[in-house]
Design a binder for these strands. Structure first.
Length: 600
RNA sequence: GGGCGCGUAGCCUAGCCUGGAUAGGGCACCGGGUUCCUAACCCGGCGGUCGAGGGUUCAAAUCCCUCCGCGCCCGCCA
């Protein structure tokens, strides 16, 4: 084997902070050597506070190092500051208490940042391709009716995560796993395979008078669903009919209308998501794993698994006591007494297919699927599979009266309804301030404001936090909201338009961008690549929402603090700064799936 | 009963993974700002025992334990 001298290939310059951090690490390393304190570069790097404290851009708390080498932290800080070799990138190194505070050269940071923004344009904040192929499965709602906002939380989290990981250089494939074979899908086929006149009266009554001509297929076809559900509870004969349907679907003999109906409803659902800029690379049908034999292979592997047990009635299960699952679920059935498979077994087949294609697999799941997720992992281990999915678990959206959004309980807020209301309010807001716009522009802006508000409202909160849905909050266009970001973007666009410099190039003199508000703004601009990397790695998509708000917020402060077009010598440089903000904020909006608006 | 998650000002929320210098925002409320590049904005003020208690540590919103409250799950459903 040939060992080449090729060290790490130089990573492309995508992070404006990188050269400054490297300079600081090198300077600290020299100081630590002088004090005979051994500390690796990687170790030191983790201790640096790059977001910066109040007294500099980058800080090093020395406590840990001091403790490990039995020194006084404050003295160590002084010593490290004193030993720091002069470096034009880092003109100020000061000890304060136990901290060493580094201030980078603002002109150089400005140069590093603006040049990178302009050079990379729409790819500023994006990493070079890593070559890693990953799958993000999200949404995967049963095609039984329209989306309510609780389910859409899954879609928004998943879509944003997919965008973040793409930006981080991963080759992302998004998948929607469609359950076209369970009881729920069968219920829909069951009712629609009958002429309306033959529908059970309670179901017909639930639908009569509710329907509107030309309504979306998911709404139309899904409307009887709650009534079917209630009806089946009371009627054993109907239950048997549905059970027969489930069996024939599993046997590959679905009713004639089945696939068509499922696709029709799914189409309606996907149309709604498309308004939120959410789409999928692949739609994966659960039935496909049954038909290609992979489910049977999974069942076979499970039957031969170490802890497989056969029940007296012929069903098969895994005795999972010892596999770390909660006590009551140690007995995991994977094959029914009649030989048919269960959702869990089919999901294993699906995951094996994913593992075969992707290096990493992420599933976005509601908290009610948490046990399923753990069981899935346990059974993957049981059949000797070493790959595991990563789960992003989010909490439900509840209604103020308490309880989850439920289709049956009538507490669900439909995405379509929310969109309708949001567009109407956005339209009113636009009309309030703009009389000069065409009807078409008003509608376009209202749609973007509405969808931007909804996406931002959901993504801003950490997935693991419960959310109570309130109309006033979801439709807020002020403060920490999507429209605030869009407004800031439109404002930056407006400045460039009025300055007649919409196209660039944007020459600047970094020394002229010395106002404190300008310096702060540049520091935030420089932080974008880090924010993207963090969101992608941690799956904390809310960090992107926070970043975009911080950037817009600081831009507005800058905007009010200093003139741009009406300034003197600084004009050109400030225009460049505005252009950089517009580019970066636009890139952030893209990752959030919030429309950029040139005007609003 | 068990498992998992959540608990940060009147309300919403960031920070928690990887402990570090006075806990960031937003809404609401009070007071200001538009002959000037978009006021969906900005400035100032008000408001915090980070659920409670204990532990680890030089240092805890952050890690560990206990308790309290809320949510979800515990099916030959998906």
């Amino acid at each position: 084997m040939t060992v080449t001298s090729q060290a790490n290939p130089p990573s492309p310059p995508v992070d404006p902070w990188a050269p400054f951090v490297d300079a600081i690490l090198a300077g600290l390393d020299a100081g630590l050597r002088g004090l005979s304190i051994p500390l690796g570069d990687a170790e030191l790097r983790t201790q640096l506070d790059v977001e910066g404290g109040a007294d500099g851009d980058i800080a090093l708390p020395t406590h840990r190092i001091a403790h490990a080498s039995r020194r006084d932290p404050a003295e160590l800080a002084l010593a490290l500051a004193a030993a720091f070799p002069a470096n034009p990138l880092v003109p100020s190194v000061r000890a304060k208490g136990a901290y060493v505070n580094f201030t980078v050269d603002p002109g150089r940071l400005t140069d590093a940042t603006l040049s990178l923004v302009f050079q990379r344009g729409g790819r500023y904040g994006h990493a070079e391709p890593t070559g890693e192929s990953v799958c993000v499965e999200h949404t995967s709602a049963n095609p039984t009716g329209p989306f309510h906002i609780g389910r859409v939380r899954n879609s928004i989290i998943g879509d944003t995560l997919a965008r973040a990981r793409r930006a981080a250089g991963q080759a992302v494939t998004t998948q929607y796993y469609v359950d076209d074979m369970g009881r729920q899908a069968a219920m829909i086929s069951w009712i629609w395979s009958k002429p309306r006149a033959e529908w059970p009266v309670p179901i017909r009554r639930a639908v009569d008078g509710e329907e509107i001509d030309g309504e979306k297929p998911d709404l139309h076809r899904g409307r009887p669903y709650p009534a079917i559900s209630a009806y089946l509870k009371e009627h054993e004969d109907a239950r048997a009919e549905v059970a027969n349907l489930v069996r024939s679907i599993e046997e590959g003999q679905p009713p004639a209308n089945h696939r068509e109906l499922t696709e029709e409803i799914l189409k309606g659902m996907l149309d709604s998501l498309a308004r939120l800029k959410i789409g999928f690379d692949e739609i994966v049908w659960e039935s496909s794993f049954l038909h290609d034999g992979s489910v049977e292979r999974v069942l076979d592997r499970l039957r031969h698994a170490p802890h497989a047990v056969r029940e007296s009635n012929g069903a098969w299960a895994i005795d999972a006591s010892g596999l770390g699952l909660p006590k009551e679920s140690t007995h995991v059935v994977f094959q029914r007494a009649d030989g048919t498979s269960l959702y869990l077994s089919r999901d294993i087949a699906y995951h094996l297919a994913k593992f075969a294609r992707f290096q990493s697999v992420t599933d976005v799941l509601g908290q009610d699927h948490q046990l399923h997720a753990r069981t899935l992992s346990a059974l993957l281990a049981e059949i000797g599979e070493t790959s595991r999915p990563e789960f992003v678990i989010y909490q439900d959206i509840t209604v103020p009266e308490g309880g989850r959004m439920s289709t049956r309980g009538g507490s669900a807020v439909w995405l379509d309804h929310l969109l309708e209301e949001a567009v109407e309010r956005a339209r009113r807001e636009v009309l309030l301030r703009r009389e000069d716009l065409s009807q078409g522009d008003i509608e376009r802006i209202a749609e973007s404001v509405a969808t931007g508000a909804i996406r931002y409202h959901i993504v801003r909160v950490a997935p693991e936090k419960p959310v109570v849905f309130r109309w006033e909050e979801a439709l807020s266009f002020e403060g920490r909201s999507g429209p605030f970001l869009q407004y800031s973007y439109a404002r930056a666009s407006s400045v460039l338009r009025r300055g007649e410099v919409a196209q660039g190039p944007y020459p600047y003199n970094a020394d002229l961008l010395s106002d404190p508000e300008e310096r702060s703004l540049i520091r935030i601009l420089a932080g974008f690549p880090r924010a993207v990397t963090y969101a992608a790695r941690s799956a904390h998509v809310q960090a992107l929402a926070g970043y975009a708000h911080d950037l817009a917020d600081q831009f507005n402060r800058f905007y009010h603090a200093v003139p741009v077009l009406k300034s003197g010598a600084e004009r050109e440089s400030r225009i460049a700064l505005v252009a950089a903000v517009r580019q970066t904020l636009g890139n952030a909006l893209d990752l959030l799936g919030v429309d950029r608006l040139e005007t609003m």
